[in-house]
Design a protein around this nucleic acid. Sequence first.
DNA 1: TATAAAACCTATCAGTTTTATAGGAATTAA
DNA 2: TTAATTCCTATAAAACTGATAGGTTTTATA
Lengths: 143, 143
Amino acid sequence: MLSKKTKYAINALVFIAKNKKDEPISVSRISEEHQIPLKFLETILTELKNARIVNSTKGKYGGYSLNQTPERIQMAKIIRLFDGAIALLPCVSENFYGRCEKCIDEETCGIRQIAMEIHSETVKRLKAATLADIIKREEKLKK
Amino acid sequence: MLSKKTKYAINALVFIAKNKKDEPISVSRISEEHQIPLKFLETILTELKNARIVNSTKGKYGGYSLNQTPERIQMAKIIRLFDGAIALLPCVSENFYGRCEKCIDEETCGIRQIAMEIHSETVKRLKAATLADIIKREEKLKK
DNA sequence: TATAAAACCTATCAGTTTTATAGGAATTAA
DNA sequence: TTAATTCCTATAAAACTGATAGGTTTTATA
C-alpha cells in the first residue's frame, strides 16, 4: 500500500499541475484544499523540491511550481521517493536492490521469478502514469 | 515489499511441500534449515494453521503438513494473510476495501484507475503462483 | 521601511507495526 | 516415564509512519 505521504504528494502535484496561471502555489493553499496537515505537507514539498520535481519561490506570494512538464513526472519516481522500492522483493528491485534475508540461491528462487514478472509489469505502468496522464484520465472520467 | 513474515511463510510452505514422505515437519526442522528464529516461525505456522492452509500433529514426531494440495495454495492468499491488502490503494482492494483519506471523488480519481489496472494484473499473477507452480519453476531453473 | 505571507530549518514525539523473545503447559509416540 | 513436539500467553526492542512545535529567513508590496 502507498503511504499517506505518497498519496498527499500525488494530490499536491496534481493540484499544482492543474493550475493554469504560472503563479506558484503555496503549501497553505494545498493544505486547505486537500485537508492535509500543513506542516506535514511542508516536509513533503521540501522532499519534492530536493528531488527537483518542483521548485520553490520564497517570500510573499511565493510557493511551489512544477520543475518539469507534467509529461515527464512519473508516478514510479514519486512512489520511490517516498516509499522506496516498488518491488515485492528486494532482490528484484531496480533502485533498492538487496538480498532477501536467508536466501539460499537467488538464481533458482521460484517466488523471485514471479516477483520479477510482477515488478516489470507494475513499473511499466507506473512509468506510463505521468501527471499529464492522470489529469487526462480524470478529465475523461468526469464526462 | 513483502514482510519477513510472508517470506518466511512462503519458504516454510515450499519446504513442507517438497517433503515427499507424508510425515509432518517440525518447526525446529524448518527453523534450522532456513535460519528462521524458532519462536517467530512458530507463530507463523499457527497463523497458517488457523487459515487452514496447513494442519498440525501434536506430540512427539508431530509437526506440520499441508492441508491443501500445492496446486490450491496461492501466493495471493499467503500475502493477504500476513501483509493484508495487495493493492496500492485501499479503494481498489478486493479483500481490504477502504476509502482513501481525504478522497474527494473515487469515481473520477486518475491514480485510482491506474491502481486498479496494476491490482488486477498483480492479483492474476499471484493467484496463478501456487506452491506447485513455484516448485515447478524452481526445478526448471535448476537445470 | 514596516508588514504580511510565504519558504526554510531543526527538533521532537506519539502511535503503530514489525520482528522478535521468554517461559512454560499440554499432548503424544515410543 | 521421557523426549519431542505443538500450543498458549505475555512481553519487548526497534523501526517506521504521521504528525507537531517553534521558530528564522526571504520577499512583494503598501
